[in-house]
């Protein structure tokens, strides 16, 4: 698509650097994956605390990354996603699926902490493809459950980033935002908080 730049360049337009930093650091040391919790909690802080989606609108590193690669450099086709991908049932269905997978990741962390399961030093892409990632963890550096949570969170972040990039390449730059579970949840919170306006 024809590159479209923001009208005024703001500091938060450079937050895509955080995404690159996050995935790079997690490649070398998986414990950095815990920093991904910032992207989980901040949207709720804005939605619950201020009743806005300012995180999505401005400060989301994922959104800025997709905007830069797809919108500014023109790697996106700029096509609108098919209607079924933009539909409410898909959006809420994906949110349900995503949260179930998040719950399963927490359960696996619990099993490792309870000694019922061995630590898996691997990143799981698309919730099924196991990719060895042993080099990023030094045994004994942290508790096994802390490492398990890091591997799980990194898997979730990397999988959603890959889906976002694929959607960006095939459709409009920020197509991921139309299905993003965090965006769906925070919009629901904002609507409830602002009395369904």
């Amino acid at each position: 698509m024809k590159p479209i730049q923001p009208i005024k360049k703001r500091w938060y337009h450079y937050l895509w650097i955080w995404s690159v930093f996050y995935f790079a650091m997690g490649f070398f040391n998986i414990i950095f994956a815990w920093l991904g919790l910032i992207s989980f909690f901040l949207p709720f802080v804005f939605a619950i605390g201020f009743g806005t989606k300012d995180f999505c609108n401005k400060y989301c590193d994922r959104g800025q990354l997709l905007r830069v690669i797809g919108g500014q450099t023109g790697f996106s086709t700029g096509k609108l996603m098919p209607s079924w991908l933009r539909s409410s049932w898909f959006r809420y269905g994906f949110l349900t699926f995503f949260m179930s997978m998040f719950g399963q990741m927490l359960y696996t962390t619990y099993l490792v902490s309870a000694g019922a399961k061995e630590l898996s030093e691997a990143v799981t892409l698309f919730w099924s493809i196991r990719v060895p990632w042993e080099w990023a963890y030094t045994a004994g550096s942290v508790e096994p459950w802390q490492a398990q949570f890091a591997f799980g969170l990194y898997s979730l972040m990397l999988t959603s980033a890959i889906i976002g990039i694929l959607l960006m390449l095939l459709f409009k730059p920020r197509s991921w935002c139309a299905v993003c579970p965090m965006g769906t949840m925070t919009q629901m919170i904002c609507k409830v908080r602002n009395n369904n306006e």
């Binding site: 479209i4 730049q5 923001p6 009208i7 804005f46 939605a47 009743g51 806005t52 989606k53 300012d54 999505c56 609108n57 401005k58 959104g63 905007r67 933009r86 959006r91 730059p173 920020r174 935002c177 139309a178 965006g183 769906t184 925070t186 919009q187 919170i189 904002c190 609507k191 908080r193 602002n194 306006e197």
Partner: peptide
């Protein structure tokens, strides 16, 4: 249909598109 992502607000040359209350 709007997902309140703010993409439109970012590119409006007149600043007349705004995301209202995150909705």
């Amino acid at each position: 249909v709007c997902v309140a992502c703010g993409s439109c607000e970012d590119v409006c040359p007149r600043g007349v598109v705004k995301v209202m209350k995150g909705s």
